[in-house]
Design a protein around this nucleic acid. Structure first.
Lengths: 138, 138
DNA sequence: CCAGAATATTTACCTAGGTAAATAATTAAC
DNA sequence: GTTAATTATTTACCTAGGTAAATATTCTGG
């Protein structure tokens, strides 16, 4: 099998997916990646920035920037922690209020996107993706 | 199954993959996305920019920019076509020369990444990815 | 206690992707 | 044949991701 096409397809799908998700999220004035953070905070409660980037497996500057934008547009607030180096990120009231609505939008979109696969195919896909790139001793 | 995790995993994998690929390509002074274009041109021969973005399913400004960078670093040249609006993209001699080497680097990396899956799992994965998001009448 | 290491965040600089609108050249329609 | 629509590319402006280095605190070993 031509591995090239597999990787190309992977790329394409993710790009396509982000693009559409961003379009769907327009109605909430939100972006894909911002949603990821919003969702994480809604599940885990207030977190420091470091906790966020480690959890999302993204570099620190990436979340600094995204959070700055989210703070500006009123989704989160960054309050100082006991340790004066760190900033704790908290959802704003507005975010709390709009969350269910947004979640429904996402849920619906994701469901429609995944509808082309049966339940067991979805699990297969998850399983295979998870296994992909799992280095033994690469 | 929680679709959320499937999409999250997809994102993560692709990000992780690009990151590593870029690192591997450093030795050739090349980036992931630039390689994609280089490879396409090596397979298809000279193409107009429009042909490139349509084939790669990317927006026009994206390839304009990437080609500009590639031209500056000596991978491609853009020559005017008969139609004075279009620019035909051609690989430079240097690109031609270095291609086999780079291809080997990529090949090797991709093979190692995909080695965690059996041949038939790879095909399964390709099949499922391909099917994912296939709208009937979404 | 205090100098040096470690940690949390930020800044500066890069690539890659997107949209909307501008520009230039070609085609089509009258 | 000139005007209007279409096509190819670019520009300006956005988000998202990365690395390397700077800054500010906190921790630690002597």
């Amino acid at each position: 099998m031509e591995t090239h096409f597999l990787f190309h397809l992977l790329h394409q799908k993710v790009r396509h997916l982000s693009k559409e998700l961003n379009k769907v999220l327009e109605q909430h004035q939100l972006y894909n990646s911002q949603w990821t953070i919003l969702y994480t905070l809604s599940q885990k409660g207030p977190m420091s920035q470091t906790q966020i980037w480690q959890y999302l497996d993204v570099e620190a500057p990436t979340v600094t920037r995204t959070l700055a934008r989210m703070e500006k547009s009123g989704w989160v607030q960054r309050v100082p922690g006991k340790d004066k180096r760190e900033r704790i990120v908290v959802l704003t009231d507005r975010a709390q209020q709009e969350l269910p609505d947004i979640q429904q939008t996402i849920q619906q979109y994701e469901a429609s996107y995944v509808a082309s696969l049966s339940e067991s195919e979805q699990q297969q896909l998850y399983h295979l993706l998870n296994k992909l790139g799992d280095k033994k001793e690469r």
